[in-house]
């Protein structure tokens, strides 16, 4: 019933809106801000299609109230590349880590955070790290390769 003025910084840009308390962050992002790259695939917090970075950590934005993100920094897939392509995006396309593309934004956000924490993950660590994100198309093998490729690219970038 209560409504609140909130300010959320999304992909570096601050947005101030009046929202109903129950508005889910994913709907705030998709419908208030028209950033439709963040998807919705379930109603039980199971699929991870809605994953965004909330203050730098992957979070399922379908299970966060927008009011509770007041003052937060959010990164969505639209903010991933910053103009160009992020190594994770590059890795996903080079290694065919996506098919229908629906899980992909969430999968990439999780992968980005994973690589920042662990720049050189093993296959097992990648599988573990993305286990909160479901993909129905790829069978994960190529997602693993995509993350490995992104890891290489990130290393190349930091060396060069």
């Amino acid at each position: 019933m209560s409504s609140h003025q909130i300010s959320v910084t999304i992909n570096g840009e601050e947005h101030t809106r009046e929202v109903e308390a129950r508005l889910l962050l994913v709907h705030f992002i998709r419908e208030e801000l028209d950033l439709t790259g963040t998807h919705i695939g379930c109603d039980t917090t199971s699929c991870g299609a809605c994953t965004v970075l909330l203050n730098g950590v992957p979070a399922k934005s379908c299970t966060v109230f927008a009011v509770a993100a007041d003052g937060a920094e959010v990164t969505t897939v639209e903010g991933l590349g910053n103009g160009g392509l992020h190594p994770v995006q590059q890795g996903f396309t080079e290694k065919h880590g996506l098919q229908c593309g629906f899980c992909t934004p969430g999968m990439m956000m999780t992968s980005k955070a994973l690589l920042e924490e662990n720049p050189d993950p093993s296959e097992e660590e990648i599988r573990w790290g993305i286990s909160g994100n479901l993909c129905r198309c790829t069978g994960y093998v190529n997602i693993v390769r995509a993350v490995q490729r992104a890891s290489e690219l990130m290393k190349e970038n930091s060396d060069g």
């Binding site: 917090t45 992957p58 399922k60 299970t63 573990w128 286990s131 909160g132």
Partner: peptide, 9 residues
């Protein structure tokens, strides 16, 4: 507990 993304919150 749950999965890595859930555990972040």
């Amino acid at each position: 507990i749950a999965d890595p993304v859930v555990r972040n919150l």
